[in-house]
């Protein structure tokens, strides 16, 4: 070794500093465009920040610190916004994400199992077609379904009219999917009435959601060893028993992360709500993110919006901690 003492110290120093050098680009940029806005947002959430403060920002002389007023206003529904109740929106938001995942995952698994049936004709065609909803950008899906649920010219009402002719109906059907305020099943979700608009969005999001779950399930299904089924059928297990005792437990490690992913995706599904219902009717389909957008874009109460963003952050943190626990648990499960 010919390395002299000072240069080896230099090498030592390089070794210690290298990881930070690798982190530098990301942290430098995030410092400006991510962390600075985050902190700024927290600061203005305690102020009466308004359109008139936009020019000077925190330096504007009339900017007042009003403590927790924005937060209290949000929680106590004291904002001068019609039909706004934070806890109802929160409850609806959770229910929306949960009810979506509860439908998408079982449907995805069942359809994947169906397509995994040996000897099924035209399997390839089905596989190719069933993947299509995954491929279309959700923004386009949302706009297309908005048209489909149009009250006068939409395809859904026309389809229902066509079907109902078999039951003796002759006239056209005009269901007001996005306007009807009366919940079709009263009391289904206590505290947050589910209007027809919710069901319309569920239909559209179901179309979009199950194929992804089905793709994940197919991958997992094909990694289940065949001998397990062979052994089970030799032991006399029926198809149903095989499904519950082999397929379901072995799919769990793959499906739970997918379900968690689907949950977080639905939880913040801005495009769907924004395009299809705009949060209406009477804010019954408003999500936290769409209301935050409303606060910024239409109402322009930036202080309140900042407080709202901080609250969303808190909710997301809780969701993350819970879902993280669930995925951790399954990781251990799959390793066991």
């Amino acid at each position: 070794m010919e390395i002299s003492k000072p240069s080896s110290r230099k090498a030592q120093w390089r070794k210690i500093s290298l990881p930070y050098l690798y982190l530098l680009p990301a942290f430098l940029i995030m410092g400006i465009i991510t962390f600075y806005p985050l902190i700024y947002q927290i600061i203005i959430s305690f102020t009466n920040f308004d359109t008139k403060h936009l020019l000077l920002g925190l330096k504007s002389p009339e900017l007042e610190f009003i403590g927790l007023k924005n937060y209290i206003d949000i929680f106590t529904a004291a904002l001068p916004v019609e039909n706004f109740n934070f806890f109802r929106v929160l409850e609806f938001n959770f229910w929306w994400a949960l009810s979506n995942v509860m439908l998408h995952v079982p449907a995805g698994v069942l359809i994947a199992t169906l397509l995994n049936t040996e000897g099924l004709w035209m399997k390839r065609i089905y596989r190719a077609v069933y993947i299509l909803p995954v491929v279309v950008p959700p923004l386009v899906v949302a706009t297309v379904w908005t048209n489909i649920f149009d009250e006068r010219y939409g395809a859904m009402n026309q389809l229902l009219a066509n079907i109902s002719t078999y039951f003796g109906n002759t006239g056209p059907i005009f269901i007001r999917w996005f306007e009807d305020v009366k919940p079709p099943i009263p009391g289904f979700l206590p505290g947050a009435p589910l209007t027809l608009a919710y069901y319309a969005m569920m239909i559209a999001n179901f179309w979009l959601g199950w194929p992804f779950m089905s793709v994940v399930a197919t991958g997992a299904l094909q990694s289940i060893p065949r001998d397990l089924y062979e052994a089970a059928s030799i032991d006399g297990a029926t198809g149903g028993q095989q499904f519950w005792n082999i397929t379901v437990p072995l799919l769990r490690p793959a499906m739970i992360p997918a379900a968690v992913y689907g949950f977080t995706l639905s939880f913040n599904l801005f495009n769907f709500v924004f395009f299809m219902t705009g949060g209406g009717p009477a804010r019954s389909t408003e999500l936290l993110v769409t209301f935050a957008y409303n606060l910024v874009r239409n109402l322009r109460w930036y202080g309140v919006a900042a407080a709202f963003a901080v609250i969303i952050f808190g909710v997301a943190m809780i969701v993350f901690l819970i879902t993280n626990r669930i995925t951790r648990a399954t990781q251990n499960y799959s390793e066991a």
């Binding site: 995030m30 991510t34 962390f35 600075y36 806005p37 985050l38 700024y40 947002q41 203005i44 913040n268 801005f270 993110v289 935050a292 957008y293 910024v296 930036y302 919006a305 900042a306 963003a309 901080v310 969303i312 952050f313 997301a316 943190m317 993350f320």
Partner: peptide, 12 residues
């Protein structure tokens, strides 16, 4: 920041 939706950072 992954927990903050894009709307949440828009004002700053």
């Amino acid at each position: 920041p992954l927990l903050m939706p894009a709307v949440g950072l828009s004002t700053p």
